[in-house]
Design a protein around this nucleic acid. Structure first.
Lengths: 187, 187
DNA sequence: TAGAACGTACAGTAAAAACTGTACAAAGTT
DNA sequence: AACTTTGTACAGTTTTTACTGTACGTTCTA
């Protein structure tokens, strides 16, 4: 993978081990809803010893430049890679964000938060309309029963999403480390 | 949606609001890597006032029984629904797991944990081989430099995954509630 | 033990997502 | 100003995923 100072045998040994790690990281990235190939791209950048441009990526991945472009953009959206400026080069350069804790938190802050907020919004609106309907049809016992059941379910759901919202807060503001402290790498 | 005691007008009003909530819950379920239609199925079961069987689901969802079967199975895998036994009925009945906290934790315990463990395993193996290679090729300065860079990256990664592992532990054993307490639903 | 009801395996089809190649706009170079 | 280089929009293709219908094994019923 571009370590041209090494002889072929050593190169092969290095590549083999890296490849296995890359594949694994890439495969597990579908937890973030990221395509496997984009996961591999991430793995490639993880081991790169310097920022890479789109052409280099395409060469290593044996894929089109267009795919690299969209892949990198996805990773940028997730803040998993950063754009790097290097004088002399006209090409855009990218390197992975090595702070994986931050990557994890950003994922929740962006993706989960969005979901949480829209769910709370919709549920609160539903609860409101429900309460209104409930008054209007106060005579209909069966309807009241149905609505009360729905209402309690929805209120529980809102409580859950608000909890999730607070959990994500602890990710973003770092309070989570009070409960689960970072431990330095071995050695 | 099967509330046959209600007149049509009221039925429509109830359905409309429910539908919006169901759609939203379903859509946001891709965070769990679940197909939208299976998310809708979940939403349907969420509002159902009693456990449903495959035929009823198919009727409501306007989809084949086969799809309901696979959809329900997916939700079972995620422990988002439970199989219910009801004497008299030969059909399998399902209802949603209303403890959404538990659902959230199970998701991490199953999906993320698996990923975390395989990553740790592969990384540790790579670190081991790396250290071995490092000794063998102690003469090659450039190789040493490359490997040391990789080694430190991989050790950082392991530390992160172990942190994630401990985080998931706090989900499973409930310690997370010490940091982010459950609040009861409003009213 | 025959018959019906139920859930799912499996093969085929429809729909969606990923990927490629071409074309072009924007920015840099001469 | 003409010519390069670079990244991406877009249309078309390939691959993957979701969905359906049929067929069949299992379990319950009579």
């Amino acid at each position: 993978m571009g370590l041209y100072h090494l002889n072929e045998e050593r190169q092969a040994a290095v590549d083999k081990i890296r490849k296995r790690v890359i594949e694994n990281i890439g495969r597990n990235m579908d937890l973030y809803g990221i395509p496997v190939s984009t996961g591999h791209l991430y793995g490639l950048l993880f081991f790169a010893d310097k920022p890479m441009n789109l052409d280099e990526m395409g060469q290593e991945m044996k894929m089109s430049k267009t795919s690299m472009s969209t892949g990198v953009r996805t990773l940028l959206d997730y803040k998993m890679v950063n754009k790097v400026w290097e004088k002399g080069s006209r090409k855009d350069l990218y390197e992975v964000e090595y702070d994986w804790y931050q990557t994890f938190f950003d994922f929740f802050d962006v993706k989960w938060r969005k979901s949480v907020e829209s769910n709370i919004l919709i549920l609160k609106k539903a609860i409101e309309e429900w309460s209104r309907l409930r008054k209007e049809h106060g005579d209909d016992e069966y309807l009241i029963a149905v609505m009360d059941q729905d209402l309690s379910k929805m209120k529980e759901a809102v409580a859950y999403y608000q909890w999730l919202d607070r959990l994500i807060d602890t990710f973003v503001n770092g309070d989570i480390f009070k409960l689960v402290p970072k431990e330095p790498p071995e050695q």
